[in-house]
C-alpha cells in the first residue's frame, strides 16, 4: 500500500522568504531595485557603463554584477566610475538567487542610495524563477538576436516590466523589425514597457534616463 501525505509548500519558499526580506528593506529605504536579464552579450554592462558616466554625479548607484566565472563586468563598472560595485561569482550556477544578493546587501550600507541595479547572469531561462526582491525585471533584446526572441523565452518576458531593445545602431545590418519584437513581447505581456536605444551612439539613452528618474522618484514617494 502506498500512502499520500499532503505537503503544501513552494519549492523556492526559502528563496522567496529572503527575497521578501530584501524587498521590505528596500521599501523602507524607498530604494528602487532592478534586475537586468538577457541572453549573454545583449549589452547590459555597456548600458550600465554609460549610465554611470552620465548620472553618477546626480545619482548614488549600488551595482551588483553577477557572472559565472569572472568579475570582469564589475571591473568594467568600477572603471566607468562606479563607487559601489559588488561582483557575485556564481561558480557554475546559471542564475543569481536571493541568498547571494542578500549576503552582499547585508554588508552594504544603502543609506542615501538612489538606485540598486543587479546585473544577472546572461541567460534568459534560469534567472526567471528566482525572485531577488527587485521592483522589476528589465529584459534586453539586442537587434542581432532576432525579433522572435520574446516568443522563444515567454517566461522571462512575461515577468519583466521593461524591455530594452539594444544595439539599435546595428539595425541596418540585421533582419530585425522593431515593431514585430514589440508586438511579440506584448502578446506575452501586454503591460511591458519598451525603450529602444544604442549605448554606442547614445540614441534613445535620454528615454532610459527619464524612465530611471521617474521610477526612482515614484519609489521614494511611496516610502514617505
Amino acid at each position: 500500500m502506498v500512502k499520500k501525505i499532503p505537503v503544501e509548500k513552494k519549492v523556492l519558499s526559502e528563496n522567496d522568504r529572503i527575497a521578501g526580506e530584501i524587498r521590505s528593506r528596500l521599501k523602507d529605504l524607498g530604494l528602487l531595485s532592478l534586475n537586468l536579464v538577457s541572453s549573454p552579450g545583449s549589452g547590459k554592462t555597456t548600458l550600465l557603463e554609460k549610465t554611470l558616466e552620465a548620472l553618477s554625479d546626480k545619482l548614488k548607484m549600488v551595482l551588483i554584477a553577477g557572472d559565472v566565472q569572472t568579475d570582469n563586468d564589475a571591473a568594467r563598472l568600477v572603471k566607468a566610475g562606479g563607487t559601489d560595485v559588488h561582483p557575485i561569482m556564481t561558480r557554475g550556477a546559471c542564475h543569481l538567487d536571493a541568498n547571494m544578493v542578500n549576503k552582499v546587501l547585508a554588508e552594504t550600507s544603502l543609506d542615501g542610495a538612489d538606485l540598486l541595479i543587479i546585473e544577472n547572469v546572461g541567460n534568459l531561462v534560469c534567472p526567471s524563477s528566482y525572485d531577488l526582491g527587485e521592483d522589476g525585471k528589465v529584459v534586453f533584446v539586442s537587434v542581432t538576436e532576432g525579433d522572435d526572441k520574446p516568443l522563444k523565452y515567454p517566461g522571462m518576458f512575461r515577468r519583466s516590466s521593461l524591455m530594452i531593445v539594444s544595439k539599435l545602431d546595428l539595425l541596418p545590418h540585421c533582419q530585425f523589425d522593431v515593431a514585430t519584437v514589440i508586438e511579440n513581447a506584448r502578446t506575452i505581456n501586454n503591460d511591458i514597457e519598451v525603450i529602444q536605444l544604442s549605448s554606442l551612439t547614445g540614441d534613445g539613452m535620454d528615454e532610459w534616463y527619464r524612465w530611471l528618474k521617474q521610477n526612482i522618484q515614484d519609489k521614494k514617494q511611496a516610502a514617505k
Partner: peptide, 28 residues
Amino acid sequence: FVFICPHCASRDLEITQGQELDIAFIEI
C-alpha cells in the same frame, strides 16, 4: 503563451494558474 482572449480578443486577462512551482505531496 498567446495572452489574448480566444473569445473576444481582449488582452486584459487575469491569470490565476501556470506559475506554480509547488510540492503537493509525498508518498510513503
